[in-house]
Design a protein around this nucleic acid. Structure first.
Length: 426
RNA sequence: GGUGACGUGGGUGAGUGGCUGAAACCACUGGUUUGCUAAACCAGCGUACUCAGAAAUGGGUACCGGGGGUUCGAAUCCCCCCGUCACCGCCA
């Protein structure tokens, strides 16, 4: 959620920024509307405060009169208070209307992209920030896509998952399950070594939490929802982990706050279809290790870069060809100011698969969840939040299986063998 | 799921209708003093919105888990919700 103060003070920059997302005109007009609404909010606030002050004053006098037994003098004052109160009620309801509209608009406005983000409508306009300069693996025509390899070696049973739950809920078994678990452990260990505190959060969250990181109202349809208990299944560990600090006032010395956690992620992915969803390319449940940082605003972009290198380190150790995209305005998630996507090359499908998304949200999430710190002048300021996948499992598994297939079987990268306890799947 | 108790400022905890934004203690910050790894004393110390001011700061309003109600007036009374704890039930 954007701060009204920002809209007031840097309106031009905000609108220029939002334009990079190619928002419809009427949404850009919200900026002016919300400022005007806020003006009337202030006006009502001031008037209402005066009224309330009078009411408080009179009430005190009534009390004094009663104590002195001057009932007759008190009664007219009581009537006066009643009159002021009914006036105030009108004002309160006006106030609520205005406030609700402001809230509604602010929630609907996406974050202002970082100045370096290019304008663009969608993913086709993302720029390659760091290309893969080495050769891409060429396995020839006989190479099998991961869903065939998974069946051949009995690693993942998509049909059984569909039988138990539905399509998009893969069932891992045998060495497939072990490989999955090894990757999770590997990623968590790497994050721990990089100084992240490990968290095992709840997998279901309440509405306030979902709102805090921006899932509601923007991506509400993306989440599974348990109506009976009014809880959402998390689409990413970012949600519960970032919300650990919801409503908190931290000190500058606490920065950077570094948290990591493995969770399954649940996404409805409504409307997806075709080769996109084949095998592990797009599923409703997948495992992911997430890294989250809460940082001082002055340092958040440096932090973003260190998170990028962390993810790069993981991919290098796994020996997977990857490239980094810098997302254009239209493809950047509404809560983020700047996002880099990592894609690994899946050699049998001959395509790039997104395996990580690393973003700086600046104050967008912290404004919603009121995550603040005291600066050196004792002023309360909003902190910055960042997060990134490190990494998303399903597609990493897809790439590993495909890229490492040989006549003899699927070779496990050396780094990972310490975790799998086997070196080949055959 | 049932029954009961409870939910106050960073922490402990007082307060059962006006004199309470809230005692006291601890923690924290600044100062005074004593020369010894610290003590004593004094002072300050919540958040949000808003108005005035260049600012320091000052005025107003709201907030004692959340929401609603009673009342001239509520932390204090009533209702609903959420949470915590204890016991019982069930259970990995």
């Amino acid at each position: 959620m954007l701060e009204i103060k920002l809209l007031r003070e840097e309106k031009e920059r905000v609108i220029e920024g939002l334009k990079k997302r190619h928002l419809p005109e009427e949404q850009l007009a919200y900026v002016d509307e919300v400022i005007a609404l806020d003006d009337s909010r202030k006006k009502i606030q001031t008037e209402s405060d005066v009224l309330k002050s009078q009411i408080n004053q009179l009430s005190k006098e009534v009390g004094d009169l009663f104590k002195q037994g001057k009932r007759d003098e008190a009664n007219p004052l009581k009537e006066k208070v009643a009159e002021l109160k009914s006036k105030n009620e009108v004002m309160d309801s006006e106030m609520n209307t205005v406030k609700n509209r402001i809230e509604e608009i602010l929630l609907s406005l996406p974050n202002v992209p970082h100045s370096s983000v290019k304008s663009g409508k969608g993913e086709e306009e993302n720029e390659v920030y760091q290309a893969w300069d080495n050769e891409l693996p060429d396995l020839g025509e006989s190479a099998m896509p991961h869903w065939e390899l998974a069946e051949k070696y009995n690693l993942i049973d998509f049909k059984l998952g569909a039988f138990i739950t539905g399509s998009g809920f893969p069932l891992f078994r045998g060495k497939g399950a072990k490989l999955e678990r090894a990757l999770i452990n590997f990623f968590l260990e790497e994050a721990s070594e990089a100084g992240y505190e490990e968290i095992i959060p709840p997998l279901l969250v309440n509405e306030d939490t979902a709102r805090g990181t921006g899932q509601i109202p923007d991506k509400e349809g993306q989440m599974y929802y348990c109506e009976k208990d009014d809880l959402y299944l998390i689409p990413t560990a970012e949600v519960p982990i970032t919300n650990i600090y919801r409503g908190q006032l931290v000190t500058e010395n606490d920065f950077p706050i570094k948290l990591t956690g493995y969770t399954p992620c649940f996404r409805r992915e409504a409307g997806s279809y075709g080769s996109d969803v084949k095998g592990l390319n797009r599923v409703h449940q997948f495992d992911k290790v997430e890294i989250v940082q809460i940082q001082h605003p002055d340092k958040s972009y440096d932090t973003l870069m260190t998170m990028l290198s962390h993810v790069e380190g993981l991919l290098n150790k796994l020996g997977l060809p990857y490239r980094i995209l810098k997302l254009c305005g239209g493809d950047t998630g509404s809560a983020a100011a700047l996002t880099y996507d990592f894609e690994v090359y899946s050699a049998a499908q001959k395509r790039w698969l997104e395996v990580s998304s690393v973003s700086n949200f600046e104050t967008f999430q912290t404004n919603r969840m009121k995550l603040r710190y005291k600066d050196e002048n004792g002023k309360t300021q909003l902190a910055h939040t960042l997060n990134g996948s490190a990494l998303a499992l399903a597609r990493i598994v897809a790439a590993l299986l495909e890229n490492n297939q040989t006549e003899a079987g699927i070779k496990i990268p050396e780094t990972l063998q310490a975790y799998t306890k086997f070196s080949i799947i055959d």
